[in-house]
């Protein structure tokens, strides 16, 4: 029996449908990510789970209870906001202790739990600081601690890292995942950053225009996109239309053919292997550990990534090559 289940969730603002027939179920302790561009409805679903928006129709259940119309106060669901939403009139200790105070815990218990969670998020020494005296990363950890200390049934994270710079973001990413594993917290994370989604999640829901485009384990969503949108959003897939696919590979498909840049093998022009395509290198780009080539093959430009092992690996523009693509690496997408 799944811990959190959502059935046929719809949300309409005026006559604009924001969330369309959303279904999902999560096991206890799972870390799930809603991934999609801004405006895809991921935050709205999160806010309906938290109770800040009322669904137009549909049902949300946690551990067997229907919470669809319960007030946010009674849901026991923790939320970390994109803008932190720390109370500016309270210091770190008071912010973190606020939820316990609302639950009428006694002072000693509050002090003990707050001290514990402050250690957990590594904020020792900042207990009496006010939000405006903290850095962005520290504020975000206070927000996380404030949500954690009340031991929520589910933790919701709404783009919690998007306002931070790259290095702090990576650190905090690992810290959040680590704490989540240690506490076994059921967590839903919302982001538009596919790298963030891939590194943190057990499972990913890719969303677009209020619908789930694809759901699955992180590595599955990346290697086996189900739709053109997912292929475009998840990586630098080569997407071939039906006509190009037929001309180049002699295959008849509906929709598009998706081929990952790193799955195309480059052989030298004299290769005698069967089932290869002739190509000419048009451009190359050095991206650190990989070299990205733009290779023209029969009028179609393909992106091909190769590992950058030694300097002599770089093939100059104009080089004639042959390309080999395994059938297993071609995915037909809608």
């Amino acid at each position: 029996m799944a811990y959190l289940t959502i059935n046929n969730l719809h949300k309409r603002f005026d006559d604009h449908v924001v969330v369309h027939d959303f279904n999902m179920s999560i096991e206890q302790g799972e870390f799930v990510t809603f991934l999609g561009p801004s405006g895809c409805g991921k935050t709205t679903v999160l806010r309906m789970i938290a109770g800040f928006e009322t669904p137009t129709s549909g049902q949300i259940r946690v551990g067997g209870d229907d919470i669809t119309h319960q007030s946010p106060q009674k849901r026991g669901i923790g939320m970390v906001f994109q803008s932190y939403a720390l109370f500016p009139n309270m210091n770190v200790t008071q912010n973190i202790g606020f939820g316990l105070k609302m639950r009428k815990c006694d002072g000693a218990e509050i002090a003990r739990k707050v001290a514990e969670v402050i250690k957990l998020v590594e904020l020792s020494g900042k207990e009496n600081h006010y939000p405006h005296e903290l850095s962005g990363g520290q504020r975000q950890r206070v927000a996380l601690a404030r949500a954690l200390v009340v031991e929520p049934r589910i933790l919701l994270l709404d783009e919690p890292l998007s306002a931070l710079d790259a290095r702090i973001r990576k650190n905090l990413r690992e810290q959040i995942r680590d704490i989540q594993r240690r506490l076994g917290l059921t967590t839903i994370f919302v982001t538009h950053d596919q790298e963030e989604a891939l590194t943190m999640s057990d499972r990913i829901f890719v969303m677009n225009q209020g619908r789930v485009e694809q759901e699955g384990r992180a590595e599955m969503v990346y290697t086996q996109p189900a739709t053109e949108f997912v292929a475009r959003f998840m990586g630098n897939y080569n997407l071939l239309g039906a006509a190009d696919t037929h001309r180049l590979l002699g295959l008849d498909i509906q929709g598009h053919l998706a081929i990952r840049p790193e799955s195309i093998h480059v052989l030298d022009a004299h290769s005698q292997q069967a089932d290869t395509l002739a190509g000419t290198i048009r451009q190359h780009q050095l991206l650190g550990s990989i070299i990205r080539y733009q290779i023209d093959s029969g009028g179609v430009t393909l992106q091909v990534d190769r590992l950058n092992r030694t300097a002599s690996d770089l093939m100059p523009v104009g080089t004639e090559v042959r390309l080999q693509i395994s059938r297993d690496d071609m995915r037909e997408v809608r």
């Binding site: 009674k74 923790g78 906001f81 606020f98 404030r146 009340v150």
Partner: peptide, 27 residues
Amino acid sequence: LRTEWREACESLGGSSAAYWWHIALPI
């Protein structure tokens, strides 16, 4: 006064009165 403050208060179990007394008025 940001709406997130009210929402954060609600999700932590605070009532509307608690929001005004502990957060909005002090701010």
